[in-house]
Design a protein around this nucleic acid. Structure first.
Lengths: 342, 342
DNA sequence: ATCCGTTGCGCAATCGTTTGCGGTTGATAA
DNA sequence: TTATCAACCGCAAACGATTGCGCAACGGAT
């Protein structure tokens, strides 16, 4: 059975479609009696407006595109929750557009947003997207955009990111303040912006504390398997580190089991800390303290900003680069020194 | 700058919009020369069809709604990947509609699918949705639906689910075959269908092996925190179990750290196994063997079935209940007995 | 009785595409 | 020369809703 349209309702009552339309939105032009009669019949006929038609007239739909490099188990689920949290009460829905780490697919996804006239786009770039391509892609797009997390250098668009350098610096400083002297660092792919920034923060903390940066104690891994190797090597050095900083969940998953397997006592002989969404560090025993890479928070901020852009008619808003602070979450494994100093 | 419409292109060339429309879809009525000229100009003007208008005419859009109880880190990300894998090549996009475990929100989400005339819906029910409500919700919906994972008893709709009972049974049997005699079981909320079925499978394996089902060794936890308590209690019994079965990731996250903390040797003194998506079991050390609750597989199957329903015009398809097999994945922690018997 | 201001509703255009049908060419066959 | 028939293209009506404007009816003021 076909769904009933506004015409069906109008015909049934012998009135004009426009009258039905107005009555259902409580337009004052329509008299009390008729208005209620129309509502009654509309309900009875299970009339519900066809959003395609509405949107064609209104030339915008309450949909926001979410373009992300991949749907992984960490980070993005929290991001999505954060986004939904602000979108839902305002009547917007989210369209998932995973790019599978492919710039081609990413471009395709943005084209989809364009053709479908979504209200706006939230994007986190593929690890292979070139800065120049990113800029031109977003410039072609004639709609509000907010970049989050995986951004590109010098983007002339709104963005919401973690304070990467600061977070890494504070993580390292925390280890230093606990009395650690020989601190290892495990990082991701060296060409990523995020890696560079976290590395910079890590080094800054060391130098500020007067510790020298030991090349053999800083390793880079492209994935979890490589992180496993790095950790294994590091834990078989003549002098093992008395603390290890891991820059991300992926690194933790590869490296931490290897560290545990090495038999070293945590937190007795070696403290650990990482930057994480907070899920992974609690999966292990002993748990790992971390600087909170708050996915939900980033999602929330990005969505808020996007709605601002969407609903502010002025088309000349200056891009704002927003930084989200990383909170330190202390768990068992790094409390050692603190306690022993009481 | 406004986006150019088909009319703009037509005016520029002094032809009719219909001609442009046909030319762009290579309709034979349009001559070679004009056709190419039109394509050239369209490209130059960056014309791209307004999908809202297209869909209004075509009365269907290439969007599939995904209604899930919550966006958690386990299971659903894999499900989404599986779904995307089959949807993307066929030109469909996914709209996320999380219900936050609220039946009201769930109803709202389905209404959204209806009003927006999505092509179809994939749904996994909230833990609070009553069977009767679920049926009426889906019946009102005039579009293809496939239920996956969290289903309800006796639903007259297509569904794709894990072989829950079978998986639990095989998990327990595996422990038994390894020589374990005193097997503990940690389960989720007892009123969930999924819990009941896994419990049934667990009991069946025990009884088939001639082992008696010890009430004190089967515990139910509503969440991770409760699972922690359950595990702690279980590991402080006079006679601790020589194996533990955990029915889900959530249970594992609560219980396994508690088990590890108890100081018992794994897999030396106690074997463990669980039903899981495969991510969590590898986060821990020692790792946990598991029956693979294959999210991607379930997502794939559900999406395939949905596309079948969407693209088969016959409206009288009989619902098909599909079961997805759970593969056993053996990791370190349960290999003990096997090896010692070599 | 005329004028004016409400009140209440219908007309028709519009959003951007698609598509059935008709009409105009020019060439070919009768 | 006149049917016949492709080959090409335009007209206009949809799809389902919204909205500016017009217009009738009616009451009250002049």
């Amino acid at each position: 059975m076909k769904r009933s349209t506004i015409k069906d309702v109008a015909n049934r009552l012998g009135v004009n479609p426009s009258t039905v339309s107005r009555a259902l939105k409580d337009h004052p032009d329509i008299g009390q009696a008729l208005r209620e009669e129309i509502k009654r019949v509309a309900l009875e006929m299970k009339y519900t407006p066809n959003q395609m038609a509405v949107q064609l007239r209104q030339r915008q739909r309450q949909l926001v595109g979410l373009v992300i490099p991949e749907i992984t188990m960490f980070f993005y689920p929290s991001v999505i929750r954060g986004i939904e949290e602000v979108l839902e009460p305002r009547g917007y829905q989210l369209v998932m557009l995973p790019s599978n780490e492919s710039p081609a697919r990413e471009a395709q996804n943005l084209k989809f947003c364009d053709e479908n006239q979504l209200a706006g786009v939230l994007i986190s770039f593929t690890r292979h997207t070139l800065p120049a391509d990113g800029v031109s892609l977003l410039s072609d797009l004639d709609m509000p955009v907010v970049v989050f997390d995986k951004s590109l250098p010098d983007l002339p668009f709104d963005s919401v990111m973690l304070e990467d350098e600061e977070a890494a610096c504070r993580a390292a400083r925390f280890l230093i303040d606990s009395g650690c002297k020989r601190i290892g660092g495990l990082f991701g792919s060296p060409h990523l912006l995020i890696t560079q920034q976290r590395l910079r923060g890590f080094r800054r903390a060391l130098s500020e504390a007067g510790l020298l940066f030991d090349e053999s104690l800083a390793r880079f891994a492209g994935n979890a398997a490589e992180a496993d190797d790095c950790a294994r090597e590091m834990m078989t050095l003549e002098i093992v580190p008395d603390a290890v900083f891991m820059m991300s969940d992926e690194i933790v998953m590869g490296a931490y089991p290897a560290i545990l397997r090495s038999g070293i006592d945590i937190p007795g002989e070696c403290s650990v800390i990482c930057i994480s969404d907070g899920f992974i560090p609690k999966c292990y025993y002993p748990e790992i303290s971390y600087l909170h890479h708050d996915g939900a928070g980033i999602g929330r901020e990005a969505a808020l900003r996007l709605l601002d852009l969407i609903e502010s008619d002025s088309s000349v808003v200056i891009p704002r680069q927003q930084m989200v602070h990383a909170e330190l979450v202390e768990l068992e494994s790094t409390k050692r020194i603190i306690q022993s100093e009481d």
